[in-house]
């Protein structure tokens, strides 16, 4: 298992197509792990790019951590990982809370990022949405663990139950993850977001509760395009091939030409074909 040692933690990292000249760095969300990229989205991107995906601390196969889940620390760890892997600049993509980590990095270290993609990141101000994200994350885990569609209710095996229970017990009761996330509630209000200079692709599920957050980011970031994909907060699992192709197109070719605002602005046009 490839592990990268950073000053305060050790992260599980996977790389694909390491010889490619440009790198895409993928950041998952809270309560999930790098497997949301590994099977479909990362291999698609690896047709063109060196792809780096890692487990955030406290998740997947990275080290446990009792604290330090705020965006500044998580972004510093992302940059430390880039330094360790000798990556000066990357195309950066984050999902859910990972998208907020990507935005934080774009604000404070724009020189390290070529193009930016944000998938289904919530507005931390919307506590209700954050709770929904939490619930979705649990369902996502159930989905992975069960091999059944989320909510199908198939019985869990004893070992799976114990693993899942241990992770939630630790993160929610023994770590500062909830407090750290709550500390970020004013993240969208900061003027610095409006100064993000990158071409930015925002991808949101057409039925997601996070859509208003995507629209808010599109208004704030001058070079942002907003793409709706059929599904809800779980679109990386529900539509991995659509998302993989959209990211590949964006990182290879940049935003669609002659479009300054959005790929899709009308929810009636949701069934788009990206190819």
């Amino acid at each position: 298992m490839p592990v990268v040692a950073l000053p305060h933690t050790r992260l599980h990292v996977q790389e694909m197509n390491a010889g490619a000249p440009e790198t895409v760095l993928l950041v998952h969300g809270m309560f999930t792990n790098l497997s949301i990229w590994y099977f479909n989205i990362a291999p698609l991107l690896a047709q063109h790019f060196h792809v780096v995906l890692y487990d955030l601390k406290g998740h997947g196969m990275s080290d446990k951590a009792g604290s330090g889940y705020g965006l500044q620390v998580m972004s510093e760890e992302l940059l430390a990982l880039m330094d360790t892997l000798q990556l000066d600049t990357v195309h950066l993509c984050g999902y859910s809370y990972g998208g907020l980590i990507a935005l934080q990095t774009a604000i404070h270290h724009p020189e390290r990022i070529k193009r930016l993609a944000v998938i289904e990141s919530p507005d931390p101000q919307e506590q209700e949405t954050m709770n929904i994200v939490d619930i979705y994350s649990k369902e996502l885990l159930t989905h992975f663990v069960n091999g059944q569609p989320a909510g199908a209710g198939a019985p869990l095996g004893k070992r799976q139950l114990e693993r899942r229970h241990r992770m939630y017990e630790f993160l929610l009761k023994e770590s500062t993850i909830r407090q750290d996330m709550q500390q970020e509630q004013h993240f969208f209000e900061q003027a610095a977001i409006t100064r993000i200079p990158h071409d930015t692709l925002l991808i949101y599920g057409s039925d997601s509760d996070c859509v208003p957050a995507g629209q808010a980011l599109q208004e704030k970031i001058s070079r942002a395009s907003l793409l709706y994909v059929n599904g809800d907060h779980n679109i990386p699992v529900q539509s991995p091939f659509v998302i993989g192709e959209a990211l590949q197109d964006f990182f290879v070719n940049g935003p669609v030409k002659n479009t300054t605002a959005a790929y899709v602005t009308d929810k009636a046009d949701l069934n788009i074909n990206l190819s």
């Binding site: 298992m1 490839p2 996977q14 792990n33 790098l34 497997s35 949301i36 590994y38 487990d55 997947g60 196969m61 885990l141 992975f144 663990v145 095996g157 004893k158 070992r159 799976q160 693993r163 899942r164």
Partner: peptide, 12 residues
């Protein structure tokens, strides 16, 4: 009873 991250480890 393997979960997704264990399938990743297996694949590697």
């Amino acid at each position: 009873e393997m979960d997704s991250i264990e399938i990743v480890a297996f694949s590697e």
